[in-house]
Each structure stands twice: as C-alpha cells, then as structure tokens.
Amino acid sequence: MTVLPLSALREGQEGRVVAITGGRGCSARLMSMGLVPGKKIRIAGRRGGAILVSVNGTKFVIGRGLAMKVAVDVGEKI
C-alpha cells in the first residue's frame, strides 16, 4: 500500500481515498461531496494547477491546496 496526496498523482492514475487530512470543515466539505474514504478515485486530467478527478462517475475540479489534503492509496504500482 502506497499512500500519496492526491496532488502527487499523475494523469490517468487510479487509487482509493484513504483519508482526508486537514480540519473538520475541510473533510466535511469533501466527504459531503462524495470524496469519502474507501471510494475509488481517478485523475481524469491535470494541468499545473487544478486537478480533474472522477469519483463515482462524478467529475470534480479540485484546487491544488485541497488536493494535498486527500490521501490516496495507489496500491503497489510505483
């Protein structure tokens, strides 16, 4: 199990959300939107700043700052 912040993932890479670090407000916000620990997440695109992710068939644009607070397990593949 290799856990990385979401912001460190490459385009096309997949993983599973492990935890949301950061304050209560931040994790409540992300979880309410469906970025919940245990969910599969895929990087659908990235271009320097914001990251495009896909969770449960819903796409989100997530800023770098917030993406650093999402811990993702990318499995053995590194």
């Binding site: 695109g45 271009r47 320097g48 700043g49 914001a50 495009l52 644009v61 800023g63 770098r64």
Partner: peptide, 19 residues
C-alpha cells in the same frame, strides 16, 4: 464555466488567484 476555470487555474494560481 467550471471547465474554463480548470483550464486557466494553473496560470492564475501563480498569482494567488484561481481559475
């Protein structure tokens, strides 16, 4: 709108702004 924001966010983030 959210698509456009994604496109330019990288550039704007350098100046403390966002897409």
């Amino acid at each position: 709108m959210p698509r456009a924001v994604y496109l330019v966010d990288g550039l704007m983030a350098r100046f403390g702004l966002n897409g």
